[in-house]
Write a protein that binds this DNA or RNA. Structure first.
Lengths: 136, 136
DNA sequence: TAGTTATAGGTGTTAGTTGCACTTATTTCA
DNA sequence: TGAAATAAGTGCAACTAACACCTATAACTA
């Protein structure tokens, strides 16, 4: 049984605190990059993803390409092949109107999540309540 | 093919922006609650989870119980049956020393994630760069 | 006292997701 | 001409999520 490697706890420890490449967190980053760049393609996005990812881990190419396809299926981006220029042909993606709205939704979701998390961190660092007298 | 329901986009939209009950986000909340309460059990934790969850969605019982078992397998909590008192016997959980450390690690992970997310939100709300003159 | 509700702790199943390795193809450069 | 860089994927086993379902005890209530 293949085990996932956790950089914090080593192998054979079935935690997920590193949080991997959760495609649900790759999606908004792709949307943001497309907004900032105007147009881009998989191979190019892969490089920039490192700098903008929400998690630490390196982004997995497979997740990226599948995310782009799914975004297109859902109407959030559109693509066209571009053969001109150097190297192999590129599939160029752009945000659609709906994609921009979807990014806005993501921003709202992540803003809320960010606040929940920072509240969590504050609570987690408080000393445990009423430990002076043992509870039983 | 059973489809997940997304409260934001309805059924048949394979997004995950609601983010469901991601067990990886249930784990730290359980650790925090156990730290705050000193001792607790599944049914009791289930009630408090709502108020402390990182995501909005209601917490799924199955995830909670399985999370508790996994935490115990990993040595982060320990449990004992308690038959006294009213109602059916309860499996009482407590944090171990290791569990407290694990919570601290989670706090560090989530602090980082929280910051990444709020940076993301800031960027996402900036107007798109250089859209005045069309890029091509 | 029988039936219902509340408390308590789970399991089973299947669809969906992830990680990682692998594949294919074109172009550039030494 | 052979290696490296660019580009876009696919295959698959292991893992995760959602939701329904199951078991049992205790308390309440008609």
């Amino acid at each position: 049984m293949r085990k996932r490697f956790c950089p914090r706890h080593g192998k054979d420890y079935p935690c997920s605190c590193g949080m991997g490449n959760l495609y649900r967190f790759v999606e908004p980053v792709v949307l943001l990059l497309l907004k900032m760049k105007g147009r881009s393609y998989g191979y190019d996005l892969a490089a920039d993803l490192e700098g903008h990812a929400l998690t630490d881990t390196t982004i997995e190419k497979g997740v990226l390409y599948r995310t782009l396809r799914r975004l297109e299926m859902n109407g959030n981006v559109k693509s066209e092949w571009e053969a001109e220029g150097r190297g192999p042909a590129r599939r160029i993606y752009r945000l659609t109107k709906q994609g921009e709205e979807h990014l806005d939704e993501w921003a709202a979701v992540l803003e809320h999540l960010s606040k929940s998390m920072s509240r969590f961190v504050r609570d987690a660092r408080k000393p445990a309540a009423g430990k002076a007298k043992p509870a039983r």
